[in-house]
Design a protein around this nucleic acid. Sequence first.
DNA 1: TCTGGCACTCGGATGTGACGAGTGCCAGGA
DNA 2: TCCTGGCACTCGTCACATCCGAGTGCCAGA
Lengths: 338, 338
Amino acid sequence: MLSERRLQVLRAIVQDYVGTEEPVGSKALTERHNLGVSPATVRNDMAALEDEGFIAQPHTSAGRIPTDKGYRLFVDKLAGVKPMTGPERRAIQNFLDGAVDLDDVVARTVRLLAQLTRQVAVVQYPSLTRSTVRHVELLSLAPARVMLVLITDTGRVEQRMVDCPAPFGEGPLADLRARLNSRIAGRRFADVPRLVEDLPDAFDPEDRGTVSTVLSTLLETLVEENEERLMIGGTANLTRFGHDFPLTIRPVLEALEEQVVLLKLLGEAGDSGMTVRIGHENAYEGLNSTSVVSGGYGSGNEAVAKLGVVGPTRMDYPGTMGAVRAVARYVGQILAES
Amino acid sequence: MLSERRLQVLRAIVQDYVGTEEPVGSKALTERHNLGVSPATVRNDMAALEDEGFIAQPHTSAGRIPTDKGYRLFVDKLAGVKPMTGPERRAIQNFLDGAVDLDDVVARTVRLLAQLTRQVAVVQYPSLTRSTVRHVELLSLAPARVMLVLITDTGRVEQRMVDCPAPFGEGPLADLRARLNSRIAGRRFADVPRLVEDLPDAFDPEDRGTVSTVLSTLLETLVEENEERLMIGGTANLTRFGHDFPLTIRPVLEALEEQVVLLKLLGEAGDSGMTVRIGHENAYEGLNSTSVVSGGYGSGNEAVAKLGVVGPTRMDYPGTMGAVRAVARYVGQILAES
DNA sequence: TCTGGCACTCGGATGTGACGAGTGCCAGGA
DNA sequence: TCCTGGCACTCGTCACATCCGAGTGCCAGA
């Protein structure tokens, strides 16, 4: 096992490297952190840390930089989550309070996260499957054409056009609307299929086909998780990455355009608490030189969606985690209020 | 005035530079284009073109590159719009035909444009102000709380929460819904204010306040042009820009994050036909080394929104313009169908 | 008006050497 | 046993010098 001092040395290396973006040597370490020992001792410790794979030398005659494994140890054992300061918290709350609708909440959240962390922020729209139904509206646009509008408790609105197999009068439509709402308003999406199962039976035979069509469209809408949208911001921060630019930035930009990749990335994160994926821990190859800090947020006790930050492995983990946690918390509050 | 041959020389310079990304010299020019004259003659022409400000030398002993003014002349006089090939057209149509809803149409359009031009694509959501109302729905969520849902002919849905000054029964609500729809369904947004002006008069005094509140929320929604959303794609193509990377890419990424800037940019473009803004012609400073090719698209004869492409001034203008025109045309068709 | 020739310029690539940060190892001391 | 100071060594970076060649401008002649 690593001695206490060696862990301190690792911590110091991570901190310095994150700060300066340059490999750190033994002398600089002893000067900037009072470890109470000489550079030579630190050198021995560093050699040991390198043997264990926590740090590495880019070149023979250069200082050390942390490896993914080193960052992992740092995040797990050596660093806490840096809480936001009072003013920061107030700023977050004020900024989010100004939002006028769901789109705006998400947009503001992205901006905020990107600014706070100076990295790329990704925010998922509140997911449908965990939400509850607030209201279902059916509009007759043509004799055999119905528009289905679904309103969720998170303020999200989904609409679908339904082409009916047969003309559908205003009377049955109103009937269906009333029955539907009385059954599923306030219920969770997951429960809806069960609740509407026998609805067609209540209608005249000639209308049953249409009712079934409408219902199956509704269920499709509920299930359609792949429709989950997300918003991205702060891509300009990618330019701060490093000097070896195009090579690093390219795959990241590509990854950010693939919503599927991002959704998967966020999906892998645990529901509660925060998940940190460092470098090669990311399944997607293009993100092998980045770290992803993500967490869930929710309107109640439960997470309804995820948000996160993508940045270089060489990032300020405590600060980033603090920002993610704080923003997630406040977004949850805002959603719960509205 | 410039002689015919000098224009040809300019055209050749632009084409070669766009192709090779390297300053082009007199010798290379005569080899690759059969101008029928010797390099020495071309040199004289180039000197003249330089005097007029159409081309410039990055360094004393280098070839020439076109200036913004040179590109401008090229676009205005020397180049046409390169039409898409048959297969390309079919591919565009097929791809767009697969869209399931408005979001999907816009998303696909962005992807398509980005792929075709290998540049950054920007597509504005169909604008509200030019559209017509398809349906207005009012839902009572609580005694004094109404949700207003507006559905446009382009398939867009906007919802607003309205807090009423007094409780509002289902009866008057249904009444208002019916009157509203009979008056404004199918009408253009611009006409709506005039059409609903006297609506409160038809209601009982105690409901008038609520009716007015609902109406003013509706009008706000219609006017709220700044809410116009847009979608961006193909940012990874920025990495192909050049070698002097971070300096060029940074401000562009920043500009792309500022929806306001982009909306302005697209807004400046003419309604019909295509607009090309080259380098410093762009008002926004960060885009001074890029060109923007934009055009309007519409569901009918009229443009309802804009779309465009952002790329280096050194871009394939004929090809880009062809792609923009083709995509705009097909998106219009798709919107008209749905 | 065009052409071939020629001297000139200057950026980029290549090579060389000095410098210095950082290392590993070792012998001596607490 | 662990820490420390010293020392030789490595190697990347920087500054400077050199060379090469693409490209130019200009001029005299067709």
